[in-house]
Amino acid sequence: MIVPLDLVIFAVLIVTAILALQVRDLLTAVALLAGYSLFAALLFAGVLAVDVALVEAALGAGLTGVLFIAAILATTRRTDASKNRRRTVVAGVSVAAFVGLLLFASGGLPDRGDPQAPAQQGVSQTYLANSLADTQTPNVVTSLLADYRSQDTLGETMVIVTAALAATLILARREDEGDVAGEGDER
């Protein structure tokens, strides 16, 4: 963890997130989101959460971009500008209030890496101390995900497969079904 680098990454994250919301061209927004994920992966790697960084880089910066682009090609590339002034004001105020609340609450959090933090006190001590003897696995993250907390992982896997199945069933078209979205001249 290098504080100046972290500050730069945070600035880049905020700028790319705001830009991704602002641009009209959705392909640009996808590229910005991929950049956001890449810098988030750097941030995770900076706090030595290498497993999370790897997933963020592979999924966030890589595959989601491809899926988003496929979705854009199947739908439309440009968004209309929001003309509703009142909605913008309400959204801006509530976002600012929420950010303020989070910043206020973060003052009560323990410091990053504090050994006295509540999260370091409970069952995690046992996991860290016994992981190698229990499972012969040097990477504690893996033994946590696939052994100590494997029911959570089973639930996540179920969610992913179910979500993909549901999306496929919604989007799939039968052979005899025409294209409703005005692209009939393509076939």
Binding site: A70, A163, A167, A172
Partner: peptide
């Protein structure tokens, strides 16, 4: 988990491009 995740991702990609 690797099989399930790769299969789910492939499924999503295939259905998205098949529309087009």
């Amino acid at each position: 988990v690797g099989l399930a995740v790769s299969g789910a991702m492939l499924m999503l990609f295939d259905v998205l491009v098949a529309r087009r």
